Simulated assay, not measured.
Amino acid sequence: MPALLKQRLLDWMGGDSSAFASFNEAALEVFAYQFEHNASYRHYCEARGVTGARLTDWNEIPALPTDAFKFPAHQPRCFPAENATRYFLTSGTTREVRGRHEFEDLELYERSILAGWSQLGLPEIRNPWFLSQSPSDAPNSSLVHMFEVLDRSIASERWMIDLEGHIDTSGFPGKAPVELFSTALALLKWTECNGPTPLAEGSWIFETGGYKGLRETMEPERFREKVAAHFSIPVNRILNEYSMTELSSQFYRWPDEEGHRGPHWTRIRVINPETGAPAGDGEPGYLEILDLANLGSVAAIRTQDLAIARGPSSFTLLGRDPGALPRGCSRAADDLLNQR
Rank of each mutant, 00 (worst) to 15 (best):
G121E: 02
E192W: 04
I113E: 01
A200N: 05
S203N: 11
L122S: 07
Q119D: 14
L180V: 07
I113P: 01
G121L: 06
Q119T: 13
S156Q: 13
E110G: 02
N140D: 14
Y109A: 02
S118N: 11
S153L: 03
E148C: 04
H145C: 05
S153D: 13
E207N: 07
L120H: 07
E164S: 15
G171C: 07
N127W: 03
N140P: 03
S153I: 00
P177F: 11
G171V: 08
L199F: 03
E192T: 05
L114N: 05
E179S: 15
L108E: 02
V178C: 14
F206Q: 06
V144G: 08
D151Y: 02
T197D: 07
I161E: 09
T183L: 01
L187V: 12
S132M: 09
S141L: 01
P123Y: 03
M160H: 01
I125L: 11
E179A: 15
R126F: 09
K175A: 13
S156L: 10
S182P: 03
R111M: 15
W129F: 15
E124M: 10
E207Y: 00
T197M: 15
E157P: 00
L122T: 08
S112D: 14
L143D: 06
K175V: 10
E107C: 14
K189W: 14
R152N: 12
T191W: 04
P196E: 05
I154H: 00
L180C: 04
I154W: 00
W117S: 01
S132A: 14
N127Q: 13
Q119N: 10
S134W: 04
S136P: 00
P198S: 00
P139M: 06
S156F: 02
V149C: 11
L188I: 08
P198W: 00
T197K: 06
M146F: 15
L199T: 02
V149Q: 10
L180Q: 01
M160C: 09
G195M: 04
L185D: 09
A155H: 10
W204Y: 12
E192V: 01
L185A: 07
P196K: 06
T197Q: 14
L120Q: 11
L143Y: 12
L199P: 00
V178H: 08
A138Q: 08
G121H: 02
L120D: 09
P128V: 09
